[in-house]
Simulated assay, not measured.
Amino acid sequence: MTIGKKSSVVASIILAGALGLTACGAKEAAVAETSASAETAKTEYKYGKIDIPGKDGALCGAPIYIAYEKGFFAEEGFDVNLISADTETRKIGLNNGTIPIVNGDFQFFPSIEEGVKVKVVDGLHYGCIKFVVPNDSPIQTVEDFAGKKIGVDEIGGTPHQVASVWLEKAGISADPQDGDVTFLPFSDGNLELEAVKTGEIDVAALWDPLGSIAEKSGEYRVVFDLSTDPVFAGKYCCFLYASSKVLEEKPDEIAALLKAYRKAQDWIAKNPKEAVDIISDKKYSAIDDKELAQELIVSYTYPSTEDRANGTAKIEEDVKYFVTELKNIGYLKTEDPDAFAAEIFQKVDVD
């Protein structure tokens, strides 16, 4: 690749670097401070002030931003303070009830097994991970991954787990001891892309929007899309997790929060362009390509009210699916995946 081409790709990709590029909000990125409107400030709130992690900059955290900006949290009785919180802060807050709810992917399941006191209470959206290769790569299908080096953000992270499930279901061992594939961690997705371009690795497993921006540059090709691949299509990869303490002591508060989230999901599903305008203009996510952002928002398939009414949103089934798959690749120790799935999921009556 020439220096000129390289600069244009990197310039586009650097914008995505600010997004956090994590499991729907597990890592932080700087975003602008947000404040409630004057009307909201005057509201009397049934449930008072609460903290919700919502400053990670991830595009797929859209329901948080929209529920805040459209006043859905306020309508349900909450004076929400959006905070930055890393993984450990979230775990502590969920355990002691100071953080009532967070969004996150199935990578959180092992943490529950290890003692974090939360329950899955709803689905958030479909896939937001892509695997990319240079245009001239011979890799086309999952079978071509045998013997290859795959870049991930961290060993044990969601892209790593997704790749492991995908490979194992195709008969390729993801266990490093077997040597079928090699996973290499990169602290920065931009470095991962450089590595795949230079041949240091064969595949880059990336969080959106970085994978999509790379593809749009014309220099990379997507060989796996979490939102469309048959192994994962139509399944929630990201969920809403509620503090068990708050669920036990204030179940009506969790129900009200879920109602606000569902209003936001429905609004996003029906108004993706307007949702992107709000997220971009309010600097919740540092993505300037609104056309691409809208494509991604649509691909995440946030459930509408109609989806929930007709049974399209099947959260409990998806929890069981990912528990089983994580057990199969060794990331869960449970001997009874069905029982564990039933234990970590709690249906909340929102109506």
Rank of each mutant, 00 (worst) to 15 (best):
D307V: 07
E114D: 15
V165I: 15
V118R: 03
I155L: 15
G189T: 13
E343G: 04
A38M: 14
K117P: 07
F340C: 03
I172T: 07
N96P: 04
L167G: 03
I344L: 05
T228D: 13
A36E: 12
F72W: 05
N190H: 08
D318G: 07
G171A: 08
D229N: 14
K5I: 11
G57K: 06
S227Q: 03
P230N: 13
L82T: 03
D86S: 08
Q346K: 14
K250N: 14
H125C: 15
F72L: 05
K259C: 02
L226S: 13
D180P: 00
L124E: 08
A286V: 01
G311M: 12
D349R: 06
A74V: 08
A29C: 07
D175Q: 06
V181M: 04
D178G: 03
I129L: 04
F78V: 08
I201W: 09
I13N: 09
G93F: 08
D153R: 05
E248S: 11
S285K: 01
A170G: 02
D288M: 09
C24N: 10
P209W: 03
S217P: 00
V298E: 15
A195C: 11
G171W: 09
R90L: 06
V121Y: 03
D289H: 10
E28S: 00
W267C: 01
D153H: 05
G20L: 09
F340T: 02
D208F: 01
V80H: 02
K49F: 06
K130L: 04
E317S: 15
P337G: 09
G151S: 08
A26I: 14
P100N: 02
E343K: 15
E253W: 04
A214R: 01
Y300D: 00
G25M: 06
G156T: 00
L247N: 10
P53S: 08
F340A: 02
L332D: 02
L94Y: 10
P303L: 09
K149T: 07
A163N: 08
V246W: 01
F322N: 09
I129A: 00
G218W: 00
A260D: 04
G104A: 12
I101P: 00
A163Q: 05
K46V: 15
P251R: 13
V102N: 06
K314G: 02
K333E: 14
D318F: 07
E33Y: 06
I279E: 01
E194T: 13
D56F: 00
C24G: 14
V298A: 07
P63M: 11
K250G: 02
G218E: 01
A309F: 07
V121K: 04
L15K: 15
S280I: 09
